[in-house]
């Protein structure tokens, strides 16, 4: 069995009296695509925020390659190898496409303020390497980011391409684990199919992916494993087909009566 990349150990997060995430545990292994599903408000995005350090868990621990990361700052967690995209896009829209990817590499480049001011050879070499790598990453989305567009602002992109650019920016962090928050939200079926294939390609390249998704076609087509959540708790886990037919999952989506009618 492949090495465990992410190990979430019974994390809990409460907001006031609400248990947004309750005693949640799961693992993500190297080279797999795991989908997190569940009705709205079931705690999926909160889980993401707990993993990426936007929130600190009230109890429990998060381990990245056997190292505890719970309670670290988002930037530190990013540098240790978890990058993410957002449900609501958060690109730097006035910056160029290339710069957006370069910002994603910010934590990896070491040149400091003094280097920048003096324009040292070290800094220039690093800059050239970063630009080359950024272009390589943009090249992973064939035809979407031609070189002629690299200097255009991100806001000039179509919605679907902005979503792709956010994935590219996340890849720039050379992540051990990539978190995608609803990567195909708002896309038409053809576009989601393309993104789904791209996500699978990324896995084949060796990336490990944890994603939140609502689109059943994408979940069925891309994930190796699915974790279903409701009211902050894990209610099912397993192969996509298994989870989709699990009575508890059907009930969570349709309610008790709906589930009875369906079965």
């Amino acid at each position: 069995m492949a090495e465990v990349v992410l190990d979430v150990r019974s994390i809990t997060k409460t907001f006031g009296g609400l248990k947004a995430v309750n005693d949640l545990s799961f693992v993500v292994r190297e080279g797999e695509i795991v989908s997190l599903i569940g009705p709205n408000g079931s705690g999926k995005t909160t889980t993401f925020n707990l993993i990426t350090g936007l929130y600190e868990p009230d109890s429990g621990d998060v381990l990245l390659k056997d190292e505890s990361i719970a309670g670290l700052k988002p930037g530190q967690i990013y540098e240790r190898g978890i990058s993410r995209t957002f449900q609501m896009l958060r690109l730097f829209s006035n910056m160029s496409i290339l710069d957006n990817v370069l910002v994603g590499m910010h934590g990896r480049t070491r040149a400091n303020v003094i280097d920048c001011m003096l324009h040292t050879p070290r800094m220039r070499r690093e800059e050239a390497e970063s630009v080359a790598r950024a272009k390589e990453i943009l090249g992973l989305f064939p035809g979407r980011f031609p070189a002629s567009r690299h200097s255009q602002p991100a806001l000039s992109l179509s919605y679907a391409n902005r979503r792709r650019l956010e994935i590219a920016r996340a890849l720039a962090g050379e992540p051990a684990l990539l978190l995608l928050d609803e990567p195909v939200a708002g896309m038409n079926p053809a576009e989601s199919l393309e993104v789904m294939r791209q996500i699978r390609d990324l896995r084949d390249m060796g990336y490990t992916i944890l994603m939140i998704e609502h689109d059943m076609n994408v979940i069925m087509g891309a994930s190796d494993r699915v974790i279903a959540m409701d009211h902050g708790e894990k209610i099912a886990e397993g192969a996509p087909q298994e989870v989709a037919n699990d009575p508890a999952v059907v009930e969570a989506y349709l309610g008790k009566r709906g589930a009875d009618t369906a079965s």
Partner: peptide, 20 residues
């Protein structure tokens, strides 16, 4: 690089923080 960080921070501080 620091200028890039300035521009990113001014556009979306939280996202910039998440990019390290």
């Amino acid at each position: 690089r620091i200028g890039k960080a300035m521009r990113a921070t001014s556009q979306d501080r939280e996202a910039a923080e998440m990019m390290g």
